[in-house]
């Protein structure tokens, strides 16, 4: 491809709104309270990451982040793989490796917004302070251990 095709996708951003709804309506999201150890990120940042995700990542990882047999899910096991790891390593990995067909095309701001979005989709709540973008400041923040909590909704 597909680089050309990829960049066309990046520009046009189809599917966004509909798929975003699917992602936010996930039960995983509702079941998880925010913990104090969660690095602070802003709602705007997470939303910017959500928009970018739909254009740059959803083709392989799925609009609802669930991946498929071949592509890793970005929920569940993502927490196990990254909990306790400095955020700088995650943003570094995203910039270096992703998207697989066009690595190196995402800016530090893009990667940071995606990390905010991933934390939100795995159950963290946004706060007032945005995630810092610099590698140095991200090195002291760790990806949170966002364990699923018991479902307390009346409609279970």
């Amino acid at each position: 491809m597909p680089r050309k095709f990829f960049f066309r996708l990046m520009r046009s951003g189809p599917l966004g709104a509909m798929a975003l709804y699917v992602a936010s309506a996930s039960p995983l999201h509702a079941a998880r309270p925010a913990a104090s150890s969660i690095p602070s990120f802003s709602a705007e940042q997470a939303q910017s990451g959500a928009d970018l995700y739909q254009r740059a990542c959803a083709m392989c990882h799925g609009a609802d982040l669930s991946g498929n047999f071949q592509t890793p899910s970005l929920k569940g096991r993502l927490v196990a793989s990254w909990a306790g790891i400095p955020l700088s390593r995650l943003t570094g990995y995203i910039q270096r490796a992703m998207p697989l067909m066009a690595p190196g095309t995402l800016s530090p701001e893009d990667a940071t917004a995606l990390v905010a979005f991933l934390m939100r989709e795995n159950g963290a709540s946004p706060a007032k302070t945005a995630l810092p973008v610099t590698e140095k400041r991200q090195a002291s923040l760790k990806f949170p251990a966002l364990a699923i909590q018991p479902d307390t909704s009346p409609s279970k």
């Binding site: 491809m1 597909p2 990829f6 083709m59 392989c60 071949q70 592509t71 697989l100 067909m101 690595p103």
Partner: peptide, 8 residues
């Protein structure tokens, strides 16, 4: 050089 790991 093609790293498009998605079915076509």
């Amino acid at each position: 050089g093609n790293s498009f790991e998605h079915p076509d």
